[in-house]
Simulated assay, not measured.
Amino acid sequence: MSETKTATTPAPDNAAAAEGLNVVARTQRQLVLRRFLRHRGAIFGMVLFGLVVLLAVTSIGAGPIPGWWDKSPTETGTVDGMGKPTLSVVPGFLGGGGFHLGEHPFGQDNTGRDYFALTMRGAQVSLTIAVIVGLVATMVGTVIGATAGYFRGWTESVLMRITDVVIAIPTLLLAGLIGVIVADKGVVLFALFLGLGLWTSTARLVRGQVLSLREKEFVEAARSVGTPAHRIIFKHILPNTVGIIIVAATLAIAAAVLTESALSFVGLGVQPPDTSLGRLITDYRTALSVRPWLFYWPGAFIIAIALSVNFIGDGLRDAFDPRQTRVRD
């Protein structure tokens, strides 16, 4: 009887240990979430970014989704009153007409196109490029950094020398070369190639984290039982670097917005007949002194997108920081 009891006792112990690990992991996720939600800058960034995306998508529509704005970014017309904006935000009790959009809230361009619709189309294209670049740069950088950090030796030497060569090339010069080659091939292809040139910082961050994790006990245990290297990397190591990867992705998105704007400003980004926020600034930079709204509106959206994504990245970095052991109540 005593031997039977001894044989059956490990099962509940193992179950309790597994439950304890689940509780610890769940508690850690809750702690990260609480840190992020208590970061005022991150919440502000999420709200601002969400509003920009919502406005850009719902106003003029996207693909099969119709929009609530009745004008198209390609529809030309008669320029009324030098194309001045009709947007009014002056409260009525101050003698103004209150809030109203008017016929052309952001004004009109030289050909009479509604500038609100044009800006929304530019925001859609810039956001599309930013998200694709962020995903591609993060995936490529993560794979290269994890492979170099785990295998070491000649694999690390080759991959990191390639990384050093790409880093040595100025980012704007490399992006400009990509723009010359594929800018006229479509927005998606342009974003994919741009992402292939902006992965280096993610690779270095992930490599540094993997170098420290590969010597941990849980990795040694997995290696000792014959677990394949690719499974160790993707199932054991990378989940423990998710904080760095997420932060790197947000920084890549913010950098992509600014890089695309800079390329479009010099004519190497999005090509007509399509447009982007950077392209709008380029097309109407000569009107800054006489019709500044053609310059200010796309510039304001570029700043809003870049700042909001950076604020979100700061919040994620602080939330995943293991040195943050306390959360204010």
Score class of each variant (00 low, 15 high):
Gly141His: 02
Gly269Leu: 04
Val187Thr: 14
Pro85Val: 13
Val182Gly: 09
Ala191Lys: 03
Gln28Cys: 01
Thr286Phe: 03
Pro85Leu: 10
Arg326Lys: 13
Gly67Ala: 05
Thr275Asp: 09
Ile65Asn: 06
Thr275Arg: 13
Ile302His: 02
Asn240Leu: 05
Ala148Pro: 01
Gly267Arg: 00
Ile132Thr: 06
Asp114Glu: 14
Val206Ala: 00
Val79Asn: 04
Leu307Ser: 09
Asn110Arg: 14
Leu277His: 05
Ile302Arg: 04
Thr128Gly: 15
Thr4Pro: 03
Pro73Gly: 09
Thr282His: 12
Ile144Leu: 07
His230Tyr: 09
Val165Ser: 01
Phe193Pro: 10
Thr58Leu: 15
Phe36Ser: 14
Leu288Lys: 02
Gly92Pro: 06
Glu217Thr: 13
Glu215Pro: 01
Leu251Pro: 03
Ala254Pro: 05
Val140Arg: 00
Val53Cys: 15
Gln124Lys: 08
Thr200Gly: 03
Leu258Thr: 15
Asp114Trp: 09
Glu217Leu: 11
Thr250Ser: 15
Gly176Gln: 02
Ala25Asn: 12
Gly278Pro: 03
Arg29Leu: 14
Phe301Ile: 15
Gly197Asn: 10
Arg323Gly: 04
Gly92Ala: 14
Gly20Ile: 01
Pro73Asp: 06
Gly179Gln: 05
Val89Lys: 04
Glu75Gln: 15
Glu215His: 13
Arg279Ser: 12
Ile144Ser: 03
Gly208Asp: 02
Arg34Trp: 07
Ala168Tyr: 06
Ile60Tyr: 03
Gly41Ser: 11
Thr227Phe: 05
Val131Pro: 04
Thr155Asn: 05
Leu288Thr: 09
Trp154Gln: 01
Ile60Asp: 03
Ser72Ile: 06
Val79Glu: 04
Leu87Cys: 14
Arg40Gln: 09
Asn310Thr: 11
Gln209Asn: 13
Thr147Asp: 01
Phe44Asn: 08
Ile245Asp: 02
Ala262Cys: 07
Leu307Tyr: 13
Ile303Cys: 11
Gly313Ser: 08
Leu177Thr: 05
Thr9Ser: 08
Ile244Phe: 08
Gln108His: 09
Ile144Asp: 00
Ile305Tyr: 06
Thr138Val: 08
Pro298Cys: 08
Val219His: 09
Pro273Asp: 10
Val52Gly: 10
Pro239Thr: 07
Gly97Pro: 02
Trp154Gly: 07
Asp314Glu: 13
Leu33His: 06
Gly195Phe: 10
Ile178Ala: 01
Arg204Ile: 02
Ile233Gln: 00
Thr86Ile: 11
Leu127Phe: 14
Glu215Thr: 13
Phe106Arg: 12
